[in-house]
Nucleic acid binder design. Structure first.
Length: 478
RNA sequence: GCGGGUGUAGCUUAGUGGUAAAGCUCCAGCCUUCCAAGCUGGCUACACGGGUUCGAUCCCCGUCACCCGCUCCA
């Protein structure tokens, strides 16, 4: 397996080929926001589609939901985000350290003073690192984006952009239960945008202020939390393998008991070894009945479930696999990126391929190529179609015919520009797994060449059954 | 939010107090019977806003963005 790519090379390729652009770039950009270009949009679509198939479509006991981004503000009181997101912080002016104000005071045997206007430090607190008394006033960092519903911008109209999709699921839990003929255990899944006013967005698209989540709330009978949690960790790990993230680049970060939220019984982060460090792709938490209980308390509506098998009533417990689409997209981009040295002058498809050594030029007789080795299911473009040369109308016509046929089934690329080798390399750089070339033999015997991105080998296939040939190559295991 | 660095074409870089160069990419044409070939032509840039100056891409100030470190990350 290739080592971690240089992030600068990766971000440059993403820009150059249309995977990722900086948001509002023509105005100088805006910190923490990113756009996905034509190829990035396809990549994300593939991620979502694969997740939805794996988590919803193939399971009888999981159903989908598409809740609104802006919800009643009481939702965020119930969920704890309104208070929990507003931790007051203090900075030391002398040594620039930052602390959470309450814990900081407590550790010095003092108590943070709550006022009408906010918070005040008790006299005598000092910086734990340098001992300075030069501290800023406590400042709240509420990570929720605030907005106003309707034309009047006063306190009664305040609403928030959701900081997670999960609460939409909890808020609609009773509706879904009443309409979907589901019984515990069952799940509700949702994909959508979420917004967090991160203090410090960084690592390219990894920590953004607007991002997309794929969340499942899986409701289970109390007492079965643990086994379901284990099941979901295993299922989710299998999915990451299926979309092309190898086991040796993935990890699990199992939370120690004392690091768990008070209501949670287990939490595992699925991590990926990014070039900038091992970071979380997905968190899978067993959250007990915390969320539904809170919504029952705050809304006054019952969240109890009547179990017809045992004639019991209970508030279901929940296991929550929560994944970030953008983080997965970034992991796929990092994993796919490869630089290679390709032997020159080999007869078609016989070229020797070596992994490039970082920072070194290709040796004599070799030339460099950059290739995105996406899993075929994740590749933004599945097939490219070329006429061998463009100045022979009958080749172009035949290739066009094949292209428009394949387009009905897959995202395809057409390219008749320049030499054939250049066109292959172009497709390599965006990770297109297969390239079909129409040549003079096609006109004679109805066969085309099918060239493989990874091996650069080509074989001849019948144009009549081309779709089946391609399907067998790129949809295996789908 | 703090400290440091950076900002010239789609990308990578050069350069200058008198508005700018190259390679690659991209586009068009010619040519081309399978791996970034060749020829011709073309598009495109000094992050933004002020200031100093006869004149600023270059000097100064501010802003924005990106990178590194700190901090934060329910």
């Amino acid at each position: 397996m290739a080592g971690s790519p240089d992030m600068e090379k990766l971000t440059s390729l993403c820009k150059r080929r249309g995977f990722v652009f900086q948001s509002s770039e023509i105005y100088g950009g805006i910190n923490g926001f990113w756009d996905y270009g034509p190829l990035g949009a396809e990549l994300k679509r593939n991620i979502r589609q694969s997740w939805w198939r794996d988590v919803v479509q193939r399971r009888e006991n999981v159903v989908g939901l598409d809740a609104s981004i802006i919800m009643h503000p009481r939702v965020w009181e119930a969920s704890g985000h309104l208070s929990g997101f507003a931790d007051p912080m203090v900075d030391c002016r002398a040594c620039k350290k930052r602390y959470k104000a309450d814990g900081f005071c407590e550790e010095q045997g003092l108590k943070l003073i709550r006022t009408d206007a906010g918070f005040q430090l008790p006299p005598g607190v000092k910086c734990q690192a340098c001992g300075s008394l030069e501290l800023t006033e406590p400042r709240s960092f509420n990570l929720m984006f605030k907005t106003f519903v309707g034309p009047v911008q006063d306190e009664s109209a305040v609403a928030y952009l959701r900081p997670e999709t999960a609460q939409g699921i909890f808020a609609d839990y009773a509706n879904v239960l009443a309409t979907s003929r589901q019984k515990v255990p069952f799940g509700i899944a949702q994909i959508g945008k979420a917004f967090r006013n991160e203090i410090n967005p960084k690592n390219y698209t990894f920590r953004s202020r607007e991002f997309e989540q794929m969340e499942l709330e899986f409701f289970v009978k109390p007492g079965t939390d643990r086994e379901w949690h284990e099941t979901w960790v295993a299922d989710r790990m299998a999915w990451y393998a299926a979309i092309g993230l190898p086991a040796d680049s993935l990890g699990q970060d199992v939370y120690a008991k004392e690091d768990l939220a008070h209501y949670a019984s287990a939490c595992v982060d699925i991590t990926y070894r990014f070039p900038f460090g091992v970071q979380e792709l997905e968190g899978i938490a067993a959250r007990g009945c915390f969320d539904l209980s809170r919504h029952q308390e705050f809304s006054g509506k019952s969240m109890e479930y009547f179990d017809p098998d045992t004639n019991e009533k209970y508030i279901p417990h929940v296991v929550e696999p929560s994944a970030g689409v953008d983080r997965i997209a970034l992991a796929l981009l990092c994993e796919a990126y490869a630089e290679e040295w390709v032997g020159k002058g080999g007869e078609s498809g016989a070229a020797e391929i070596l992994p490039a050594e970082p920072g070194k030029p290709a040796p004599q007789g070799y030339e460099a190529r950059t290739v995105m080795r996406f899993h075929p299911a994740m590749a933004p473009v599945k097939v490219a179609v070329f006429p061998l040369v463009k100045n022979k109308p009958e080749l172009v016509a035949k290739a066009r015919e094949i292209f428009t046929g394949l387009q009905r089934r897959w995202p395809c690329a057409w390219d008749q520009t320049g030499a054939i080798g250049r066109r292959y390399r172009r497709q390599d750089e965006i990770g297109t797994p297969l390239a079909v070339t129409v040549d003079f033999d096609t006109l004679e015997n109805g066969t085309v060449t099918v060239r493989d991105r990874d091996t650069m080998r080509q074989e001849r296939a019948s144009a009549d059954t081309l779709a089946e040939t391609i399907a067998a190559r790129i949809e295996a295991g789908d």
